[in-house]
Write a protein that binds this DNA or RNA. Structure first.
Lengths: 136, 136
DNA sequence: TATACTGTATTATGTCGATAGGACAGTAGC
DNA sequence: GCTACTGTCCTATCGACATAATACAGTATA
């Protein structure tokens, strides 16, 4: 399965389910008018309560990301991929913005921030030497 | 005051207090053997319950970051600045690691990741042109 | 000694997320 | 029609967090 839930973290499980379904739609893992996994099946695969999945699905339905086919399940709406791509981009922009802001507010040395970021960039870009030069 | 609490977020208030006190120690805003704000004073300034501050302070004391001077208050322990600096560095490393990992897992285009990161780097480094070249 | 602070501890209430267990109507396939 | 699915709804319980309102012992200062 394509979902990965962090039970220990502070983010509510149903919110993680909502987001990861959206990201799966954004990346094309689930296509428009395809059925998403049933409440009971997903709850079995993730080893969480069916009610928790149901709550996530209710949220997705309220937002119009999926629609109900009575007796069959929930299917991805037509415009969902584009909407989810936009949401995903905005979400990561916001997360990075907050993290940089926290780093500045906590007075972490800017050199350290660049060091950490370049390390991560290099990790997923092994052919690139870290290249953001020091400054200011 | 040097603390900034997000009441709406998912992070527990007492945990935010713990972390921000640690970061204030790391940055030298509070020095060794100096008293930190009293439970009641900080609760007034942050407009939160005294019990919430007391819980944060108990945590700091359990970790040995501060020690009690009975009847006077809590003071920063000797080795705390070094310890808090190390913790701060580790914390941001972990946050950035998770965020990049999430971006990869959600199949966000790597070009978009670099775009977002360079935007933030440029924001706090205005004299530097975004300089991580495309690759991969 | 009186007061005004300190930290610490207790009990109770309310909210929220998660779980447990069950019930219902609708649909597909035999 | 029967069975096995589907989403949806309900009540109840539990733990974590935050709050409210006290209470207590220790210390500094006047």
């Amino acid at each position: 399965m394509f979902l990965q839930i962090d039970l220990a973290g502070s983010v509510a499980i149903y919110e993680q389910v909502v987001q990861q379904i959206k990201f799966a739609i954004a990346s094309g893992t689930i296509l428009s008018n395809e059925l998403i996994p049933s409440v009971r099946e997903l709850s079995r695969q993730l080893a969480i309560n069916p009610n928790t999945v149901a709550r996530a699905y209710r949220t997705l339905q309220d937002e119009g990301i999926v629609y109900s086919r009575r007796g069959m399940g929930l299917a991805v709406a037509d415009e969902s991929q584009h909407r989810c791509k936009t949401e995903r981009r905005s979400w990561f922009e916001e997360q990075f913005r907050k993290l940089f802001e926290d780093a500045v507010r906590s007075r972490l040395d800017w050199d350290e921030v660049r060091e950490i970021v370049n390390q991560q960039l290099g990790k997923y870009n092994p052919q690139l030497a870290p290249s953001v030069s020091a400054g200011g």
